[in-house]
Nucleic acid binder design. Structure first.
Lengths: 210, 210
DNA sequence: GTCTATAACGAGATAGAC
DNA sequence: GTCTATCTCGTTATAGAC
């Protein structure tokens, strides 16, 4: 077995262990068991457990973001973005990847190494959303109201938090609520659009936001 | 020193330790050190560390929700609710209470005892929001669009997740984005209100939501 | 690169004196 | 109720044979 194989097994095993046991149940021993690899090899290849987890987070995000790229590229309206987001969320939630990211994000609070890897992983997701928002938002009446960067970050982080709900009850239909709100304003007729524009102008005259 | 004093010290110490060291750095020993209490007393008074944390989460939520109750009771519009929510969030985030809840929520994934206490704690927050929503939402054009329960849960959970962002970068201005969106639709004039109502009727005819 | 063995330590929890 | 002392186990990490 080559070194690259071992590294790969460990990276996969690390994510699988967090998925199955949570971060609290994730140790060098439990990862090695899941990966089917000797425990000492973790330290040979990655120096520390946290460094392995950070690298695993980065790689996992890359591999999961990639298949959505083509789909996101075809999105031209905010409504389509929300539909794509709904599908993405359903898939990643079902696979437990959202929960994994949330666990690592929680662990990042006390581990600088983990913080760096998790930031990179979450950044890949929000960058993807941000790209689409930059393209789609200007066509919407909501342009100028929503900031692409802040919105993408907020949505990504909120979804990570939402996935933590799994253990304590049913996950609330957050996207459904958001979708309803956005769909109401977005995709309006010309007359309504002018009304919204007027209202927007009034709002930015007397801004309530910081 | 009475037993009630010791219990109180441990409950406070448990929260303080999670706040300062994260859940990963929270142990019977570290809690006892923070509380200035002998380590063995944790098990005498609470049986297990997780049971102490669960009880601490419940109590902390009670004590933090309470001071906002009067403020929330005066809220009559959605815009006011958002303003109150913004103030609440700023305060709890600054105190680190949001991060504590998020840490416990993450730990709840692998500890049934912790899950129960965390569910109760988070439930107190979302119940408060839900109460206001039930009173305020019917007056808004958004009535019938947003479900009070799902919205309250989604907002609470999303904010917990948002607080996890602290360790890996600046917290995005999520409430600002949401506020802009809601403010746009809410608090409309009679003419615009009719337009929104028409659009709502159209949406519910061909529902996109599950 | 991979293995076994083990060092060094902190964890949860308990026994038993006071 | 509170304390000290301790048991037992799992943890990260390393040394050294192969």
């Amino acid at each position: 077995m080559t070194a690259a194989d071992t590294r790969r097994k460990l990276l996969d095993g690390a994510i699988d262990t967090v998925r199955a046991e949570g971060l609290a149940g994730t140790s060098a021993r439990s990862i090695a068991r899941t990966a089917g690899v000797n425990q000492a090899l973790i330290f040979y290849h990655f120096d520390t457990v946290d460094a392995l987890l950070a690298e695993a987070a980065r790689r996992a995000a890359q591999e999961r973001v990639e298949p959505y790229r083509a789909r996101f590229a075809t999105v031209t309206t905010l409504a389509e973005l929300l539909a794509a987001g709904r599908a993405l969320w359903a898939e990643e939630e079902a696979r437990g990847n959202a929960a994994v990211l949330a666990q690592l994000l929680a662990g990042a609070q006390t581990s600088p190494a983990l913080a760096e890897g998790t930031a990179a992983a979450l950044g890949l997701w929000s960058a993807e959303v941000e790209t689409v928002l930059r393209r789609v938002l200007p066509e919407s009446p909501l342009a100028g109201l929503l900031d692409p960067v802040a919105t993408a970050q907020a949505v990504s982080a909120a979804f990570a938090g939402l996935s933590l709900f799994g253990a304590i009850g049913a996950t609330p239909d957050a996207l459904g609520q958001l979708e309803a709100l956005v769909a109401l304003v977005d995709d309006l007729g010309p007359l309504e659009r002018r009304l919204v524009a007027r209202r927007l102008a009034r709002m930015t005259d007397t801004p309530k936001r910081s």
